[in-house]
Structures are given as C-alpha cells and as structure tokens.
C-alpha cells in the first residue's frame, strides 16, 4: 500500500563521487517497506517525482536510508537538502525482491547506483542465515561505496571498469570466481543486466530495473518494459521494479 509520507532528513553524507546517502525518519515506510521497493520523492520546484530505491531500513529507529547519484537538476536539488529538513514521498512503491523462506547461497550483483537496493536485501538474507556473495561493479575508484557493509554480509568482490580499485573489468568477468549459488539478485544499468541474464540463462534470478517515471503508481504507462514474448509490456513502477530475469526483454 502506497501512501504519501513526510520524510524527515536525519543525515546527509557524501559517500562517493556525486553519490549521496540520506537517512530519513518515517514510521510507516520503515515498518512496511521490503528490499527492492522505492520511494517516489517530491523535489521542490520539480513537476515529476524522482524514484529512489531503498538502501536500508532500521525498524527500531524508524529510519529509511536512500542513496542517489547526482545526475541532473532534480538530484542536484535533493543533494542540497540538509538534516532537519523534510520532503514528501509516495511509498513504499513497487514490488520488491521476494525472498524464499529457505536457506541457501545467494549472489548479489550490483552496478553503480544499482548497488543500494541490494544492500538491504543482503542484510535480510544474512538475517535468515543465508550465505551472501556480492559482486559490486563501479566505473572507477572514486565511485565505490558500501564495500565494508557488503563485506560484513559475506564474501565481496569489487570491480572497477578501469581497474583503479579491486578487480578490473565488468561484474560478469567475476561471476565464475564467486563459486556456486542457488539464485541471484541484480540491479544496475541495462547493458549489465543483459550481460548477466545472458551469462546465467538457467539460474533463477531477480533483476531490478529503472526508467524515467511519470506517476510512479502504474497509471500513466511511462515506465514500461516489453515482456519476453514481445506481446505486452510490464510497468516498471508497479509490476516491478523487480522482475524475474527471463520475464522481460532487456
């Protein structure tokens, strides 16, 4: 159930190049959101809301953490907000990662600003005593964030495209080294998701997508992705953003 909620900013931290971590206080969202869901954030002076995925939740402190990259005027404005200020969101939005109630080994594959939703997911999996292996790809060293947090969940590989930190190349270059796993969860740019789903055609996997959104509630048909049979569309904001890896045509 999506509600319009006021988020009070508790802290704003610049955690990597053009990358902001915001801790927000809100009872309803912190109590109801699941990993992979997002907040549709209203930014002063902007007609359209900005979808931002949930990176972490602290149910006791009733806080929700979001991470976003400054990529345009909206995120630029949001980055100027300070602790103590507030903004409204629609949320928790979309269908998140469904976690089966069984133990196993799960591979998290994140690329760039697609990494954040995997953190809250990884935490939930680790809480269920699942084994978590993470492969996190970034363009370059200055983009890297949350390395230690993921290491606390399990074995973690950091890859940079230019080799300035960790392994060199793409997340797909590392998958073999991660060993065997039961299923995977991935979020990142479409070319990365394409490469992963192609490389892992038989493994069950869930992928999270992003797109420019209008309403964010499933009414306007702006953020759609064709289904694999090419015969229809799924709505990223309300059917997704998480889909079965083979369900949509990337």
């Amino acid at each position: 159930m999506i509600q319009k909620e006021k988020m009070i900013i508790k802290s704003v931290t610049n955690i990597a190049l053009d990358t902001i971590e915001m801790v927000l206080e809100n009872t309803f969202i912190s109590k109801t959101a699941i990993p992979g869901q997002f907040l549709h954030a209203s930014i002063e002076g902007h007609t359209l809301r900005r979808p931002i995925s949930i990176a972490d939740i602290d149910r006791e402190k009733e806080t929700v953490t979001i991470l976003f990259k400054i990529l345009g005027k909206g995120t630029e404005k949001l980055a100027t907000y300070q602790a103590g200020m507030s903004f409204n969101v629609l949320g928790p939005s979309g269908n998140g990662f469904q976690i089966e109630d069984k133990q196993g080994t799960y591979l998290l594959i994140g690329g760039g600003i697609g990494v954040p939703p995997l953190y809250y997911l990884g935490k939930k999996l680790a809480e269920k005593q699942c084994q978590v292996i993470s492969i996190l790809g970034f363009q370059t060293k200055t983009n890297v964030f949350y390395e230690e947090k993921f290491r606390a969940l399990g074995e973690t590989f950091i890859v940079t495209n230019d080799g300035s930190y960790g392994e060199t190349g793409f997340v797909t270059d590392i998958i073999e080294r991660a060993g065997d796993f039961d299923s995977y969860f991935s979020c990142g740019p479409v070319p990365m998701l394409k490469a992963i789903t192609k490389k892992l055609p038989t493994k069950p996997g869930l992928i999270s997508l992003e797109e420019r959104m209008g309403c964010g509630v499933g009414a306007c048909m702006a953020c759609v992705i064709p289904t694999n049979d090419g015969k229809s569309y799924q709505k990223i904001c309300s059917d997704g953003p998480v889909f079965h890896a083979q369900e949509v045509s990337l």
């Binding site: 902007h46 007609t47 359209l48 005027k73 909206g74 797109e211 420019r212 959104m213 209008g214 306007c220 048909m221 702006a222 953020c223 759609v224 992705i225 064709p226 229809s232 569309y233």
Partner: peptide
C-alpha cells in the same frame, strides 16, 4: 496498442514531455 519505446517522459521547466 503497445505504445512507443522508452523513455516516454522527461521533465521540462514547469512541466514535462510525454
């Protein structure tokens, strides 16, 4: 009708294109 390829919307000054 399946509509157009994405992106289908973008914000503009005081409005949006769809």
């Amino acid at each position: 009708r399946l509509g157009n390829p994405t992106p289908r919307v973008v914000e503009t000054a005081s409005g949006m294109l769809n």
